[in-house]
Simulated scan of single mutants.
Amino acid sequence: MKRISPVPEKILKHKITKYLVEDEVVMNWSILKKCILMLALGCGVHLTWLGWDIFVLLNPEYWQYVHLERVYTQITLNSSFLVILFLLIFPCYKFQGNQLIERYLPYMAVGTFVISLCRDAYLVGVISPVATTSYVCLIMVGLVLFHRTLVYSMLIPASIFLGGCAYLSFSHQLPYSPLFNLDGELFYNGFWLLSMLYFILPILAVCMVLFEILLSQWRHREQLIKQLSQIDPLTNLFNRRSINQCLDKLNAAATPNYALVLLDLDHFKKINDHFGHHKGDETLVEVSAVLNQQLRESDVVGRFGGEEFILVLKNTSLEKAEQVAERCRIAIQQLQIFSDEGELIPVTASFGIAISTADLRPQQLLSQADQALYQAKADGRNLVKAYVEPLTAQMQVS
């Protein structure tokens, strides 16, 4: 478990803004912004259809595979849906933040999009590769982006419509895939196969890009949340939970020769009471920076709560731990922190050290370090004390 160097406040805020604020994470967009995304996708679908319609009409050799009157109708309907979907983008953009509009407009926007796709699915065949691919991809995207109530309110009628069309086609009450001429051998018809591929690829590509964006942003957010759950937000040091995890790992790995150093700022309450809590926070931040500067990369430093800090020194003897603690004590004492009136604020800390042994659990080691810290405070503060067995007896006698 590596030590986290102090993260400047601006950088931390930038990360939070980048991954957690509404403008960056698609999943956290307002519902109308998500509708704009869906409407833009719908416009792209109908532009694709219009391109196919025009291509067929400009190439007479393909007329034998389609019903031309349906193609002409398609141009009109695809153009109409394109205009409607495009126009719906304006109120979605204009009325963001309006609770009444945000409650009802998404049903209109997504509903129009679904209706247009259902009609196209019927024209090419409700169990065709295009219809099934679009159905699965859009459901998955919809469930990620929108509330389930909205998605299922559109999904259930659409499924009933497509299922009804499939049944009526099977019972010969409706033509199946009325856009195409199915008199020939459909699945050996190169034009039909290429048309299916043409319709599938844009939808599949867009959905895959959306999924990749959503999953990427989800991973980034989870990573940041995990990091934020491990560090203290004021000092950007490990918090108590992370320190306990670190100690558990050391204990599980039977790591020998590590030291725990507990330190507590002396008379910290006076700093808050006399100079203000903002100066108390500044003191904590400055002390955390000093501790980071005095330790090795392999060591761990954390804020254990309030004005108490903890150091985990790996591969360290008692003598070495005392040297590190003394170096930290002097550096803290030399801090230059001034009040709002320019008065120097005295800052000192007391230290308690405990060395690991094979038969000690992390909580027992913490208790020993805490006893040594107590002794440092009892002996006048601004001192470094190490836990040794006679210390316990002395404390019991006193």
Rank of each mutant, 00 (worst) to 15 (best):
E9M: 08
E9V: 08
K10S: 07
K10L: 11
I11H: 10
L12R: 13
L12P: 03
L12I: 10
L12D: 13
K13D: 05
K13L: 04
K15F: 11
T17Y: 14
T17W: 14
K18Q: 15
K18E: 13
K18C: 09
K18G: 10
Y19I: 06
V21H: 15
V21D: 14
V21K: 15
V21A: 12
V21G: 06
V21E: 11
E22D: 10
D23R: 15
D23F: 03
D23T: 14
E24T: 12
E24L: 07
E24M: 12
V25M: 07
V25N: 02
V25R: 11
V26T: 04
V26P: 01
V26S: 00
V26C: 00
M27D: 02
M27C: 01
W29F: 05
W29L: 01
S30D: 11
S30T: 11
I31P: 02
I31E: 00
I31C: 01
I31K: 02
I31F: 05
L32V: 04
L32P: 00
K33D: 06
K34Q: 00
C35W: 03
I36Y: 06
I36Q: 03
I36G: 02
I36L: 06
L37S: 04
L37N: 01
M38T: 11
M38L: 12
L39T: 06
A40S: 14
L41F: 15
L41M: 15
L41I: 13
L41Y: 12
G42N: 05
G42T: 06
C43Y: 04
G44F: 12
V45Y: 08
V45S: 03
H46E: 12
L47I: 14
L47Y: 07
T48S: 13
T48M: 08
W49T: 15
W49D: 08
W49K: 07
L50N: 09
L50F: 04
L50M: 14
L50W: 02
G51H: 09
D53A: 04
I54N: 08
I54Q: 10
F55Y: 09
F55N: 12
F55M: 13
F55V: 08
F55Q: 10
F55I: 10
F55S: 12
F55D: 08
